[in-house]
Nucleic acid binder design. Structure first.
Length: 426
DNA sequence: TCTGGGGTCCTAGGACCC
DNA sequence: TCTGGGGTCCTAGGACCC
């Protein structure tokens, strides 16, 4: 059995890079992408990082600095980014069938069985191909564990001399160099909460924690912390995860641009969220066994209030009508007119594959099939028109307080015919 | 009324990731 | 005025049982 070799392919400044594909004029200019509601910064070009703008900072806190430095802003166009993500993934799938799509902008490959002589040369070739075919720059880290591969990709991204590819496989010197270079807070699995705690004990780098004993790490962190430390030493604890594993929950939550007190408004929002999750559920051929509705006031005000309520779906279902009804039942249970709500959402859980359930419980098959056909038709229409053309009346979508702001969204260049870029001959 | 230990199961909240 | 969204996993603590 070969020792595993993991490659992490990480798209640089992903959302910014997607926007730049269609705006080459911005290639070397400062660019940032905003979250929903244009609330936070969720992607920054190197130029913006150099200004000291941190990740996920609220936009209003840095709007002055951004203006002074002529930063071009985009509202998040997540449909566009999803499309680019798929294009990059397709290229990686050709490279190796052993792939885990870890997030929208990162994938792990297991490459020990590939005939590669020089891992860094391989990485640079792959990087060039991805850039040529999609316009997205990537960094690639190669190591005997996933945690080290993440660190190596980080190193590649921040050190130009690597030309975007860094491998520590079979090289103890580079392994050690990487550990000593990596700040403890940048280790995969060590977050903002535990970083200061570890620093108090003098643990400042990945190297420091790789020296700590299992019992000590377990007592300060948890079992995952122990695994992380082992992975840093080069002992693989996390395998490639297949993307075939079914999801455990589906959520749709939104912050509202203003506090919403009106029940009718909240009803429209919750119904819309429920319908959206139901459509996603169906696209995955699954049924939900429960739906949770939640509301909360702003996290940043004195008065705090939140509530959630779970409604069981028996039998499990993927029908929009039933899921919306259950979500609204939850809403009624938690709604309190004394509060203005800033955020709300729904989560579907106890998910099960549709096929398995039908065999197991039977039920009225004819009725289920009729409903399924109706849902399929609605999904087809909505998918075709890339909009929620057909919907329940209660999902009122007229101008409402809860609708997100998106003031600077770029066109859906690649997923909507109407927004295709136009090249003018001159 | 006081005194237990040990086991399981469930849930809420926390921490982490991108 | 303005502070993201969608996930997973782990743990502590409560409820319950014997």
């Amino acid at each position: 059995m070969l020792k595993p070799v993991y490659a992490l392919v990480d798209c640089n400044n992903f959302f910014v890079s997607c926007e730049r594909v269609f705006r080459p004029d911005l290639w070397d200019k400062p660019v940032a992408v905003l979250s929903n509601n244009d609330g936070c910064i969720v992607a920054r070009s190197n130029e913006v990082k150099a200004l000291g703008i941190p990740m996920a900072v609220p936009y209003f806190k840095v709007s002055d600095v951004l203006k002074q430095n002529n930063v071009t802003l985009f509202s998040g166009n997540f449909q566009l980014y999803g499309d680019f993500s798929q294009r990059v993934t397709q290229i990686l799938q050709q490279e190796s069938p052993d792939i885990e799509v870890y997030s929208v902008d990162e994938s792990f490959l297991e490459i020990s069985s590939l005939p590669i002589k020089d891992y860094e040369a391989w990485a640079r070739t792959l990087k060039a191909k991805i850039f040529k075919w999609t316009g997205i720059p990537v960094s690639i880290g190669i190591a005997p564990t996933k945690t080290l591969a993440k660190a190596a990709a980080d190193f590649a991204k921040k050190n130009e001399s690597t030309e975007g590819g860094f491998s520590i496989v079979g090289d103890d010197t580079k392994h050690l160099e990487l550990l000593k270079w990596l700040p403890i807070g940048d280790v995969w699995g060590i977050g903002w909460r535990t970083t200061p705690k570890l620093q108090e004990y003098g643990i400042r780098t990945a190297y420091d924690i790789s020296l700590a004993s299992d019992t000590w790490v377990q007592s300060q962190l948890n079992i995952r912390g122990v695994k992380t430390a082992h992975e840093l030493k080069g002992e693989s604890c996390y395998e490639l995860e297949s993307n075939n594993e079914p999801q455990k929950s589906i959520a749709h939550t939104r912050s509202f641009p203003h506090a919403v007190r009106n029940y009718y408004e909240l009803e429209g929002a919750i119904a819309t969220f429920a319908a959206q999750t139901a459509a996603k559920l169906r696209s995955q051929q699954e049924l939900a066994g429960a739906v949770m509705t939640f509301l909360r006031t702003s996290k940043y005000t004195k008065i705090q209030h939140s509530g959630s309520h779970v409604v069981t779906l028996l039998p499990p279902t993927a029908e929009t009508g039933k899921i919306v009804a259950a979500a609204l039942e939850g809403l009624q249970a938690i709604y309190d007119p004394d509060f203005g709500y800033k955020k709300g959402g729904i989560t579907l859980f106890d998910l099960k594959p549709r096929a398995a359930w039908q065999l197991e419980l039977g039920g009225n098959i004819a009725d289920i099939d009729r409903q399924a056909a109706l849902m399929a038709t609605i999904d087809q229409l909505n998918n075709h028109y890339h909009t929620r053309l057909v919907r329940h009346a209660i999902e009122h979508t007229e101008r409402s307080d809860w609708r997100s702001r998106q003031q600077q969204r770029s066109p859906n260049y690649t997923t909507n015919w109407a927004e295709l870029p136009i090249i003018k001959a001159s």
